[in-house]
Amino acid sequence: MAINDLNAEMSAGGEPKGGPKFDRGHPLSIFVRDRNEDLSALLLAFLIAMSGIIFFG
C-alpha cells in the first residue's frame, strides 16, 4: 500500500497527515505567481514614480 497512499496524503496538503508543502501563496495571487512578483514590483515602482511626478513635480 504505503507509497501511493502516502503520496495521496502528502498531496492533500495541509491535512493532518500530510507532509511539508512548499508555500506558493494563493494560486491567483499576482504577488507570487510565476513572473508576477517581478511584474508587481515593476508596477509598484512605476506607480511610485508617477505619484512622485504628480505630487512633487
Binding site: I3, G19, P20, V32, D34, R35, E37, D38
Partner: peptide, 24 residues
Amino acid sequence: NASTRDTYGSYVEGVLEKDAAEQV
C-alpha cells in the same frame, strides 16, 4: 523571480517525498 522559486519548491517537495518513500 517567483518561477525559479516555484521550481525549487516543487523540487524540494519531490526530494522529501522520495526520501520518505525510500524509508517507507
